[in-house]
Design a protein around this nucleic acid. Structure first.
Lengths: 259, 259
DNA sequence: AGATCAAGTTTCATTATTTGAAACCATGAT
DNA sequence: ATCATGGTTTCAAATAATGAAACTTGATCT
């Protein structure tokens, strides 16, 4: 959905410094960040200072380490309510889960990657953030391909640029060409499949959620090769389509609650 | 925990523009934001453009509206794992909830406000982000006062400055002086209480989670006046203390997993 | 103790970015 | 056709960011 996200101005650079800290999955020292940073010492230092001031990072003076700030959680809460499909999809997901009894994922796109915003599983209903906000690749997941299939040319090219095309399994698409061929097929058919492209034994059927022709998210039903065959996936087309349409309608209504 | 967060530089200003959008709880037009903004048209316009480029906002060209971007959710996910108490507290919270059977809140501090990061309730285990990331006042909640009580003078003053002291009920602290008196008492006693200060009928006992003398969060057990008296709250002192100590220990261990 | 070294912090002249008034453009209403 | 409204672009002036180098701190070694 997003195109460039290159360094435009100071804000872009500061945010890229924030991502550097995020990349570590633990609190980090200044020097550790510096090693991975393209910025000179003084510059990076000031970035981290500013980000800390702003609450996007927090600094522990005892250990001299930086970690991600809680302001992000508050902002994400706003993002969640304001523009994720999750809050308007709760009931639909519950119904769909009751119908099919398989793992369900609701995802959106962020910078060419898949971002999971909600799910339903057999174990522990939902585990807060540990689940939401997770990212995954687009080129080898059902939801990812479903959304890519409906992107306009410019956005698609930008997104393809960012795909790693890492060969997770023998079925993973190896390059953009191969993927593109499947994308047009997905668009024609309306459904996208993951045929053990991401993980052996895991398959899924997915469908994009469209609003005015643009993909605003995707919904998938996942299962294993042990429990189901590829053909079985098609039996869920009807409930999946219904759920997708309901979410699309809810999203439309949400756009302008005031008008 | 944070002090200033005033406009330092371009990053600070851009983020304050982001907050403007967040304040609306729906997608907004440019002109709506402009009305509430201290910045001139062209400047705000460029801020929103930059933020959109960076994925902190998203723009819907059909409706011409901005809303919070999904990159925030991804960043918050990192924040959540890296520096919230939630991931390391799961087991402790489960145990505590099993012991007391009352609503439990785990909170941290952000810019003088209370930020709820995890909870346990009777209904629907947890509701993802709709719960996490919520903010509340510090001056009239158990967790808020517990944390305030252990802040150093400078940080405390900055935090008090931000309290609204809105008179929610007849028991709400009306000013900083009155609150300060209770804070020293809380520090002496080690426990903080909400005696219907935020909402009539709702009471709680809370305790700060300390690391090297600094409050890194707080834990509370909430109930109602219908079910329990003020004195009853004290029966939870022991399990509450134990839970707090376990979380503090876990936080200490987490600081340097590599050493 | 003193010397050595690494990590973190500050300075300041240079350079690049941001700023915002005003002009411009697009769209829809009168 | 004209006017308003909301949105977008321009460009010289004002401001903020930059980064090499100097400095401070604190830990480790001799």
């Amino acid at each position: 959905m997003n195109i460039a996200r290159d360094n435009d101005g100071t804000v872009g650079k500061a945010l890229s410094a924030l991502e550097l800290v995020a990349a570590f999955e633990r609190p980090v020292r200044f020097s550790e960040v510096l090693e991975h940073s393209p910025y000179p010492k003084a510059t990076l230092y000031r970035f981290l200072q500013t980000l800390t001031n702003q609450g996007l990072l927090q600094y522990d003076p005892d250990q001299g380490v930086y970690s991600m700030g809680m302001r992000l959680v508050r902002l994400a809460h706003a993002a969640w309510r304001q523009s994720s499909l999750a809050p308007i999809s709760q009931d639909v997901l519950d119904t769909l889960y009751a119908q099919v009894g398989q793992t369900i994922h609701l995802a959106q796109m962020d910078a060419g990657q898949v971002l999971y915003v909600e799910k339903r599983t057999a174990i522990r209903p939902v585990e807060m953030f540990s689940q939401a906000g997770k990212v995954g690749p687009a080129y080898c997941t059902g939801v990812g391909k479903a959304m890519l299939a409906y992107l306009d040319d410019v956005t698609l090219e930008a997104a393809l640029q960012k795909q790693a095309f890492y060969q997770h399994t023998q079925f993973t698409h190896a390059d953009a060409e191969s993927l593109k061929t499947e994308l047009s097929q997905i668009q024609a058919e309306g459904f996208s499949y993951d045929r053990e492209e991401h993980e052996t034994g895991i398959i899924c059927i997915a469908k994009a959620i469209l609003l005015n022709g643009r993909p605003i998210g995707a919904l998938s039903i996942t299962t294993t090769t042990v429990r189901h065959s590829f053909d079985d996936l098609n039996e869920w087309k009807q409930p999946l389509t219904q759920a997708v349409e309901q979410i699309a309608q809810a999203a439309k209504d949400w756009q302008f609650p005031t008008l």
